[in-house]
Amino acid sequence: MATALPGLPSLPPQFKPIQHHLRTAQEHDKRDPVVAYYCRLYSIQTGMKIDSKSPECRKFLSKLMDQLETLKKQLAGNESVAQEVVGNAHVENYALKLFLYADSEDRSGRFHKNMIKSFYTSSLLLDVLSVFGELTEENLQHRKYARWKATYIHNCLKNGETPQ
């Protein structure tokens, strides 16, 4: 099923792997535009690696690039966008803040949708860090743990079980 992303054509099926990163970008347009900017940058880079030849993918990537260029103009003067090393720290701090919130809820035995989403979003933002270079071993571990926890707790709640 095609996913509606405002301002973009229907998501080509090849781009399913970046669907959640694009959704995270939209969710952060107002909350944290720097995070939104780098989520889109990750999506376009990853999308170009997946398929930049087929007409539907080229059309999608071109529109996404338009959005990114507009966003960069709007964020002119923001050093997290002007300097990628600052952007790297910004996105990493944001991802770890979400991770620590979800982890704290988990360790306190408070299982709910918001903490599942925080674990999952932190894993997506750790993916985004790859635009700045290879992930550190610590970030790789955090990403793996966050993704596993999000899936595990989601399944437990769905099945009426208490996560261990």
């Binding site: 940058l41 376009i44 880079q45 170009m48 930049s52 030849k53 080229r58 990537l61 071109s62 690039m65 990114l68 260029e69 960069k72 990628e84």
Partner: peptide, 27 residues
């Protein structure tokens, strides 16, 4: 016709790469 459309696709692909490089101040 096949090689023409391949050439067009390649040009558009290059254009995307160039726009991405400009965006990231890598040109």
């Amino acid at each position: 016709t096949g090689s023409l459309s391949a050439s067009v696709a390649s040009t558009e692909q290059d254009e995307l790469s160039q726009r991405l490089a400009r965006l990231r101040d890598q040109v």
